[in-house]
Simulated assay, not measured.
Amino acid sequence: MGTTRMRVLEDGSHTGHRLGMVESVLAPHTDGPPQHRHAQHDEGFYIISGTVRFTVGDKGYDATAGTLVMVPPGAPHTFANLTDQPAVMLSTFTPDLYVQYFRDLQRMTADGTPLTPQAAIHTMSRYATGPATDFA
C-alpha cells in the first residue's frame, strides 16, 4: 500500500483471537488497497488525525479525526489518503484473522517481491477476502 506504515497493536493472542488491532500511518497521496470484501470478519477504522477517503461500493466519504467507520462482512470497501497531510488511524478486525495478511505483505516486501495490486489480491484470498470486481 505504498508508503503506509503499520504497527500491530494486538494480534489476537491476548483476546482469544476475537480481536486484532493495527495502527496505520498513511502518507499524503497514498492509495489504499483495491476495493474488496471480507467474508469472515468485521473491520473498524477510527481516524486519529488527518482525513481518510473511504469508498464503500460506489459512494465516497471523507472521514476526519474522531470518526469511526465500521465495515461489516460482505461490504465492498477501500480507503486512501488524498490530502497533503499524513493520516493516522486505528483498525480493528473481529475476529483477528486479517492481521496475518499485513504480516504477509511485510514479508513479501522484505523478500523483494513487488507489492502490486495483483499480489495484494492473491494474499487477501488466504484470509477470506476478495476483490469487489463489481465496483473496481
Rank of each mutant, 00 (worst) to 15 (best):
M1E: 07
T4A: 02
R5S: 10
R7G: 03
R7E: 10
L9A: 03
L9P: 01
E10V: 14
D11K: 02
G12A: 10
G12W: 02
S13W: 05
S13Y: 06
H14I: 06
T15C: 14
T15P: 12
T15Q: 10
G16P: 01
L19C: 02
L19T: 04
L19D: 02
G20P: 10
M21Y: 01
V22P: 02
E23V: 08
S24R: 03
V25I: 04
A27L: 00
A27P: 01
P28K: 01
T30N: 04
D31T: 01
D31S: 06
D31G: 10
G32V: 05
G32F: 05
G32Q: 03
G32P: 06
P33N: 07
P34C: 05
P34H: 05
Q35V: 08
H36T: 01
H36I: 00
R37P: 10
H38P: 13
H38G: 11
H38L: 13
H38F: 09
A39G: 13
Q40S: 15
Q40K: 13
Q40D: 13
Q40G: 15
D42N: 02
D42L: 00
E43Y: 06
E43D: 11
E43H: 10
G44S: 15
G44Y: 13
F45T: 07
I47C: 08
S49T: 08
G50Y: 06
T51C: 14
R53M: 14
F54S: 08
T55K: 07
V56W: 00
V56I: 00
K59P: 07
Y61P: 03
Y61I: 14
D62R: 13
T64G: 08
T64H: 10
T64N: 07
A65R: 10
T67M: 11
T67P: 02
L68Y: 15
V69A: 10
M70N: 07
V71C: 11
P72D: 13
P72C: 11
P72L: 05
P72I: 10
P73Y: 11
G74F: 09
G74W: 09
P76V: 01
P76T: 00
P76R: 00
T78A: 09
F79Q: 08
F79A: 10
N81K: 00
T83M: 12
A87G: 11
A87D: 12
V88G: 09
V88H: 11
M89I: 07
L90M: 07
S91G: 03
T92D: 01
T92L: 03
F93D: 03
T94W: 14
T94K: 15
P95F: 11
L97S: 11
Y98N: 11
V99F: 14
V99M: 05
Q100C: 06
Q100S: 08
Q100R: 01
F102L: 08
F102I: 13
R103N: 04
D104H: 14
Q106P: 01
R107G: 14
R107P: 14
R107W: 12
R107T: 15
M108N: 09
M108R: 12
T109F: 03
T109H: 06
T109E: 04
D111P: 11
D111Y: 14
D111H: 13
G112Y: 15
G112L: 13
G112T: 15
L115V: 06
T116H: 05
P117G: 12
Q118E: 15
Q118L: 13
Q118N: 14
A119M: 02
H122K: 12
T123E: 02
S125P: 04
A128C: 15
A128S: 14
T129W: 00
T129H: 03
G130Y: 09
P131Q: 13
A132R: 00
T133P: 01
D134L: 04
F135V: 04
